[in-house]
């Protein structure tokens, strides 16, 4: 197979994404490594959303719920471990942990269950109703977090020492970046395999023509529910990493601004494209730090850019660079 332009763009993106922090390490600029880590984490959240938004055509405006659940999984487990207080003692003992792997598993399970419940209700609607109901569920969880004093309420929860990963000093910026980058790679590979599988094709088919999908014996609702759950799990994993990056979780991670931001990365980078979320997250972080350092209203030009992408370049950044129009 010859390399098409999109593959070339993707390769350049991947190389730059890894090269920048490595060069930054050589130049002793840990802040840039932290920014690259943030790109990796946001991209991962975007990969999750892209699965339902890009391939399933489902505009979920509530993915902050899953991002925040991942974050709180890290925060709550770590705070119990650091205070030597078990989460519960009866009927059986559950203790906190500072092991990322355990935290991720908890984040994946909890987000999957919550997504299953939210999806089972919201996926019975479509269009603007789906957008509004996913938003409503996320806001419910947001207000719950604010009003629950046990884990900091509105003030959030600090993680005093970044959680650990076997064989890795996670406090070392480049090591933590490498961990996030590898996890992003795994998630993107998984997503690439998934969308080409029979399940992924059925998901795309259900977006293009749900009735036809039914006529070949596949119920769109179930396909979409499974996709919604997987999507939420990926976003929750990103949330757990984000909490560890900041060593802090707060209800902000659950707010609708966060849902909007994740959606912005995906749209900026290219909806329904594998590398779209990475390109979008990178562009977003770069703009935030370049424009943000000179002008406090940097979100105004971001909004204009978003408008331009939506109106004239619906393939997003990757679509424009690849020179191919592919409407979502």
């Amino acid at each position: 197979m010859t390399m098409n332009r999109e593959t070339l763009i993707n390769t350049i993106l991947a190389v730059a994404f890894v090269a920048v922090p490595v060069i930054a390490m050589g130049m002793n600029e840990p802040f840039i490594i932290t920014l690259a880590t943030k790109v990796a984490i946001f991209a991962m959240a975007g990969v999750g959303l892209n699965l339902v938004l890009g391939f399933g055509g489902l505009v979920s405006f509530g993915h902050a719920a899953f991002f925040g659940i991942g974050g709180y999984a890290a925060g709550i487990l770590a705070s119990h471990a650091l205070n030597y207080e078990p989460i519960m003692e009866s009927p059986f003992l559950i203790e906190g942990t500072t092991q990322m792997i355990v935290i991720w598993i908890v984040a994946l399970i909890v987000s999957a269950l919550v997504a299953l419940a939210i999806g089972a209700i919201t996926l019975r609607t479509s269009g603007v109703y789906f957008i509004m109901i996913t938003l409503a569920f996320a806001q419910m969880i947001y207000y719950f977090a604010i009003s629950w004093p046990a884990y900091g309420g509105e003030d959030g929860l600090s993680i005093y020492v970044r959680n650990g990963f076997p064989g890795l000093n996670t406090l070392d910026p480049i090591s933590f970046f490498a961990l996030c980058a590898v996890m992003l790679g795994i998630v993107m590979l998984f997503s690439a395999i998934l969308i080409r599988s029979r399940f992924g094709l059925a998901l795309q088919g259900a977006r293009q023509n749900p009735q036809r999908m039914t006529a070949v014996g596949i119920a769109p609702f179930r396909i979409r529910l499974v996709a919604f759950v997987i999507s939420a799990m990926i976003t929750a994993l990103a949330g757990a990493l984000y909490a560890d990056l900041n060593r802090f979780v707060s209800p902000t991670m659950l707010s609708w601004h966060m849902s909007g931001e994740i959606m912005i990365f995906v749209i900026l980078g290219g909806v329904g494209r594998l590398f779209g979320p990475l390109a979008g997250a990178a562009l977003y972080i770069i703009l935030e730090h370049l424009l943000g350092s000179v002008w406090e209203f940097w979100q105004l030009p971001l909004g204009v850019l978003l408008l331009i992408v939506v109106l004239f370049a619906r393939g997003g950044l990757v679509g424009v660079l690849a020179g191919e129009r592919k409407h979502a």
């Binding site: 029979r198 094709l201 059925a202 088919g205 293009q208 999908m213 070949v216 596949i218």
Partner: peptide, 12 residues
């Protein structure tokens, strides 16, 4: 399914 390839239409 307009945006899927021939093969993908069949596999789906």
């Amino acid at each position: 399914f307009a945006r899927l390839s021939v093969m993908e239409n069949l596999i789906a």
